[in-house]
Simulated scan of single mutants.
Amino acid sequence: DHGFVSISEKADRETLNTIEDNYYIEHNFDPKEYELQKLLSTLNGNPFLNISDVITRRDHLKTQLTAVSKRVSKLILENSSSYTTELQRVTVLTGALQDSIETCHKARRNLRRAQYQITTRNLSLIRNEMRKQQWINVLKNIEKLKKLHSFDQKLKEMVKHEDFVGAIQLYSQCGNTVHHYKEYQCIRDLSTKLQDTLDFIEESIDVTLAKLCSYFNPHTYQRLLNAYRLLGKSLTSMDQLQMHFVNVVQTRTLEILLKTVGTINNEQNLSSYSDLCKMVPEESFSSCLHELNVCFWQIIKSYKLIWLWHEKNPPSIELTNSDTPEPSQEFLLQKLESGSSRLWHEIQQKMKTFILESN
Rank of each mutant, 00 (worst) to 15 (best):
Q195H: 07
L289S: 15
T353H: 01
H219C: 07
L343I: 03
F331S: 13
K10A: 15
K211T: 14
E143L: 13
K193P: 05
S358M: 02
Y23D: 07
T177N: 04
T263A: 10
K301C: 13
Y228F: 13
S82N: 08
F354A: 00
S284T: 05
V207K: 06
L276G: 00
K211R: 11
I76Y: 08
K38W: 12
T91G: 07
N79M: 07
N266S: 12
K182W: 03
P314T: 00
D53W: 01
E311S: 04
Q173A: 01
E14S: 05
H345W: 07
L190C: 06
I55Y: 03
E33C: 01
N269D: 13
G166T: 09
H60F: 12
V165I: 08
K140S: 12
E291K: 07
A227V: 09
H149E: 15
T208Y: 04
T260N: 03
I76A: 13
T320W: 01
N247T: 11
E311Y: 02
V165K: 04
S204G: 07
L40G: 02
S237I: 09
N22D: 14
R112E: 15
S6A: 09
R342T: 15
N44Y: 10
K160C: 07
F29S: 11
H244Q: 08
E143R: 05
E267G: 01
E283D: 15
N247F: 06
E14M: 06
Q153H: 06
R112A: 14
S8A: 10
L292S: 02
P47T: 03
K182L: 07
N122Q: 15
I126V: 13
N79E: 14
Y303A: 00
I25D: 14
K352M: 12
Y24W: 11
S286F: 10
C174H: 02
T94R: 06
L292A: 04
N265D: 15
E102N: 10
T103S: 10
T353K: 01
K156S: 10
S328D: 12
I347C: 02
P315F: 05
L87A: 11
K259I: 06
L224T: 11
G95F: 02
E102M: 05
D196Y: 10
L145T: 08
N359R: 05
H161N: 08
